[in-house]
Amino acid sequence: MQTTSKSGRKLLVPTEAEDKAISAGIAADADSPELGAEFFAAARPAAEVLGAGVAAALVAKRGRGRPAGSVAEETKSKVNLRLDADVLEKLRATGRGWQTRVNEALRADLEAGRI
């Protein structure tokens, strides 16, 4: 079965029979057992297992939340813009980052005095 995510991405969802077959395969694989409540009850914090220094270095390398520098000092404003369907289709067909490229093209036209 196919479904569409909020972002428009097409997702294949297994049928009930396929899901049972996948679960049976997972259960039969001794190299990757399913982790249950017993496993998580015995889990310990990384700082305790690796040492405080190693755990601190890992957190410093990649902390929680957005990566450093990913939030601009000047944030953009969200607007609703109505475009012709064919224009929107061609813009989206250029791939990820199409909105940023539209912003750059509009900026260039503004700076060049074309708008």
Rank of each mutant, 00 (worst) to 15 (best):
Q2A: 09
T4I: 14
T4Q: 12
G8F: 00
R9E: 08
R9H: 13
R9W: 04
K10V: 13
K10A: 14
L11T: 05
L11M: 13
L12H: 15
L12A: 15
L12R: 15
T15C: 06
T15I: 02
E16A: 14
A17L: 07
D19F: 12
A21P: 00
I22V: 13
G25I: 01
A28P: 01
S32K: 15
P33F: 02
G36Y: 02
F39A: 13
F39D: 12
A41G: 05
A41Y: 01
P45G: 04
A47K: 00
V49E: 04
V49L: 12
L50V: 01
G51S: 05
G53W: 01
G53P: 00
V54C: 11
L58G: 13
A60G: 09
R62E: 06
G63H: 04
G63V: 01
R64M: 06
G65Y: 03
R66S: 10
R66I: 00
P67R: 12
A68Q: 12
G69C: 04
V71P: 01
V71A: 12
V71L: 13
A72Q: 12
A72I: 06
E74C: 11
E74Q: 14
T75P: 02
K76L: 13
K76T: 14
S77W: 03
V79F: 03
L81I: 04
L83R: 10
L83H: 08
V87S: 12
K90G: 07
K90W: 05
K90S: 11
T94V: 07
G95W: 01
R96A: 15
Q99P: 01
V102Q: 00
V102P: 00
E104R: 13
A105Y: 04
A105L: 10
R107C: 06
D109P: 00
D109T: 03
L110T: 02
E111F: 08
E111S: 11
A112W: 05
I115P: 00
I115S: 12
